[in-house]
Nucleic acid binder design. Sequence first.
DNA 1: ATGTTC
Length: 477
Amino acid sequence: MNIERLRPIDEWSWSLPKAPEETRGEVRLYAGRELIEHMDDKVLEQITNVAKLPGLVGAAMTMPDAHWGYGFPIGGVAAFDPEAGGIISAGGVGFDISCGIRCLRTTLAAADIAPVARALADSLFANIPAGVGEEGSLRLAPRELDDVLTGGARWAVGEGYGTEADLEFVEEHGCMAGAKPEHVSDLAKKRQRGEMGTLGSGNHYLEVQVVDRIHDAEAARAFGLAEGQVVVSIHCGSRGLGHQIGTDYLVSLAKGAARLGISLPDRELACAPIRSPEGQQYIGAMNAAMNCALANRQILAELTRRVFRHFFPGASLETLFDVSHNTCKPETHTVNGRPRLLYVHRKGATRAFGPGHPSLPARYRPVGQPVIIGGSMGTGSYVLAGTAESENRAFSSASHGAGRAMSRNQALRHWRGRELIDELAGRGILIRTKSMRGAAEEAPGAYKDVDLVAEATEKAGLARRVAFLRPRLCVKG
DNA sequence: ATGTTC
């Protein structure tokens, strides 16, 4: 992207000075110069389109890891007021509804896992179903699947996956209100019946990591993190169900937009007013998909514990936090000094509530919400904490990952999966996957530099760095 | 992301 097109607000925030007339708010990009210069022009085009949608409040924004997506950029944040004709867009949530990361802190040290690393990697690979269309050991009857869609992680705990103690540390306490299974198609439900407790493919993973560096001692203490400690991060979402809901509702939201005379700057931005039948049906289905994803990560956390228990009977794996990064949620935000209920789209962006937010567990309330930036395969991830400034800057949002720097097809031309895996093994990082193609697509070089993303996230005031996690073992979808 | 192009 030609940075000359942007006006610097400061070193880490940029605004589009000559936005088209139809925009209803500022177009703002959060990132450092280097990240902006390497960003696809499509990011600016797409977020400018988002700024044209009805009922936008404040700025349409991108996070430092932003890249080209379907309609909305991935790393896009935009809030809409339902009382001002505000819209909901399936492209603003993403196909993998409620994709997110569950982070578990363990009582193990790096030295504990070193002697069994290969066996542990093999056992995780054998017991965590991963890959396209891969099914798990659960087969749910239609009524049971409806219970998943209304119960979320709470349902999974009731089925013996994990404990009540996990739920305090899951967004929405594990259960998103307002789920309407009746607005989820039979096809979406059918696709999901065998896919609960599966990781999926693409950028999804289960990683065993070691805390490599502490940036903020006070927050690390609150999060229960210390240097040398083993943690496990699980990145996955709502699998076939969320994808099918996205596909179904692109059609019905486009009809809603046409029916109500909303002109779409891009057909990929199919949307309908929040206060419309089409909008309400999508919201009900999206909330159901959110519960599907929360239940899925709850099951996977328990499957992980069972594997660890076999190797380390005395170890415990507690949920540090579970946060989604493909959502649209109703939240109260202060705009010009006045609290307003807004629907905040975060597509490839993490909610990042600051210190004192009432929805946070008491343990974290003094330091802010844990924010997880999942790195690319073999590079590293960050745990951050929400800040007070993020509320004014980005409706309390932050980055979600390293962010792609190259398309999957481009990556396939540059790398071979087997060579990458061997090279990573040489550096002590064990990858387990069924798909060599997938591994090539996920080459670390096809992603942005996660250190730059985390630095920009902090410097832009979106969240502050707490700990850097270095990968050891990785099960890839 | 995705029964990886209805």
